[in-house]
Structure formats: structure tokens, C-alpha cells
Simulated scan of single mutants.
Amino acid sequence: MSGFEQLLQGQLPKLIMFDLDGTLIDSVPDLAAAVETMLLKLGRPPAGLENVQLWIGNGAPMLVRRALAGNMQGSGIDDAEAERALEIFMEAYDGGHELTRVYAGVRESLKWLQKQGVEMALITNKPERFVAPLLDEMKLGRFFRWIIGGDTLPQKKPDPAALLFVMKMAGVTAAQSMFIGDSRNDVLAAKAAGVRCVALNYGYNHGRPIEEESPDMVIGNLQELIAGCLESSAEITLDTSVHPSQRDSIVVVTRKLWMKVIKALARWRWRA
């Protein structure tokens, strides 16, 4: 039995929102390389890939503070020093993503969902300047109609603001939506938005088993959601009123839309 059959009684959600790092792609090697470049330029000892993997998940500014402090708290770091370090990190990470890889089963699953007419969005805490180019580099960009980065809105996950905004844009309810991620931030954001959450157990949840966060389902490969359906769409159906989205209408939400986003969220939350 597929994950969708277990969670939705044979129906597909109208909207699926995805996290990026640790969910669709393994970006730790490139992020770690950028952190090490930053630390080297600042005359600090290297952090090591394992530590960087533990520190990922709360956005670039927090990753930089944790690297400077050498711990998860990232405390005791001067703001000016953190700002300078962030500039170095961003420049280093902008240099390329040769070591980043797409996880097994991701492309096949996204292709299948796209063929079924499921709307898809990407919601990540990664700075927005990197997101769309990285998705295109990984040949994943064409699957997502809405793309929101970690600094697109004033809030980032675990705040549900981005999830609520995308649901508003898609014209769907929480019951018709799903979020797929790999970390505590993803589960908390999904729960706060009232949507089902599926978690991947291979991600970067600060070294903790994702099962501890009590998502609705834990899987080891996206294809578990559509097991037995890759060759046929007969077992799982989408509401006939939903049509495949037009890929030329992709919306990359930028900081320039903040005021519109905030107003839309205010109306959404008021009605809720």
C-alpha cells in the first residue's frame, strides 16, 4: 500500500509543499565547503562535515553563527563579526554546487506527481538567491510553481507563514495540502499550518531521529508515497476539478512581494 493510500484513502493532495536541503537534495558537502572557506578566511579552525550537517536547518545566518561558535546554540558571537562571516559564506557558497546531489527517487516521484496534475511548491530556509538557480542546476525547477526562500518573508520555518501563503495562492485548504520535509522545523511548520506532514528519515534533523517529532508518516524514499503507481495512475486519483498547472506560470516569491504576502496572510489568518 502506498503512503498516499494510507494517509488520504486513495486520493492525492491538491498541493504538496516540499523542503529542499535534506529532503530533495543532499547539499551538505557544498555547504560544509563554504563554511570551511569562511572559517579559514577568518583564521578559525575547521568545523568538519559532520558538525555542519548538525547545524543545518535554520537558515544561513544561524548556520554561520553556529560555525563561529562551534556549537548548536551559536551564542556569544558579535553581530558585526557574524555579518562579515555571513558575507564570506554567501560568496563561497555562490561559487558552485558541484558536490550537491539529488536523492534517489526524487525525480521519478516529482515527474509522477506532475503528470497527475498535483500542484507543487518549494519552501526552504535557504537564502532565496540560491534556490531557483540551484533547482535549475539540479534539473528540478520545472516541477515547482511556487518557490519561497528563507529570507523571502520576514518569517521562516518553523513559522507556518510560507505554507499559509502558498495555500492561499493555490486556492486550497489545509485538508487538501501536504508538506514533505526532513526536520523538526518542517514538522512544526506543517502542524502549525494544519497540514499533514510526511518526513524523510535520511535528512538533517540536527542528528535526532525524525520520528521524535511525530510527523504523520516517516519514509525513506519519496517513491514510498506512490508505491505501485509509477507505471499507472489507476490506484490513486486526483479530484477531476484540478488540472495540471501551467509551467509557464511559475512564481518565485521575492522580498519585493513582502507587503502583498503580509496582507494576504493577515486575511488568511483572520478567516481561520
Rank of each mutant, 00 (worst) to 15 (best):
Q11Y: 13
K14E: 12
I16N: 00
G22S: 07
L24I: 10
L31I: 13
V35A: 06
E36Y: 01
T37F: 01
T37R: 04
M38N: 00
M38F: 00
G43V: 00
G43A: 01
P46Q: 12
E50S: 08
E50D: 14
N51I: 00
N51V: 00
Q53D: 08
L54H: 11
I56Q: 00
G57M: 08
G59M: 02
G59W: 02
A60M: 10
M62N: 07
V64S: 05
R65F: 02
L68D: 02
A69E: 05
G70Q: 05
N71G: 06
M72Y: 07
S75C: 12
S75A: 15
S75V: 09
I77M: 01
D79M: 06
E81C: 11
E81S: 10
E81A: 12
A82N: 00
R84M: 09
A85C: 09
L86I: 11
E87H: 09
F89D: 05
E91T: 15
Y93P: 08
D94S: 15
D94L: 13
H97V: 07
E98Q: 15
L99K: 12
T100W: 03
G105Y: 08
R107A: 11
L110W: 10
E119T: 09
M120G: 00
I123A: 00
P127G: 05
A132Y: 04
A132M: 10
L134M: 13
L135M: 10
K139W: 09
F143M: 10
F144V: 03
F144K: 04
R145M: 04
G150T: 03
P154H: 13
P154Y: 12
P158G: 07
D159F: 06
D159S: 14
A161C: 10
A162H: 10
F165H: 08
M167A: 07
M169Y: 09
V172D: 01
A175F: 03
Q176V: 03
S177Q: 08
D182C: 06
A190R: 06
A192F: 02
A193D: 09
R196Y: 09
N201K: 11
Y202T: 04
Y202C: 03
P209E: 11
I210W: 04
I210S: 02
I210H: 02
S214A: 15
P215D: 07
D216G: 10
D216K: 11
N221Y: 11
Q223M: 10
L225A: 04
I226W: 12
C229H: 08
L230T: 12
S232T: 14
A234S: 12
L238C: 13
D239I: 07
T240G: 07
P244T: 14
Q246K: 10
S249A: 13
V251F: 11
V252L: 12
V253A: 06
T254G: 09
R255H: 13
L257F: 15
W258R: 15
I262V: 13
K263H: 12
R267W: 11
W268S: 12
W268E: 15
R269V: 15
R271S: 14
A272N: 14
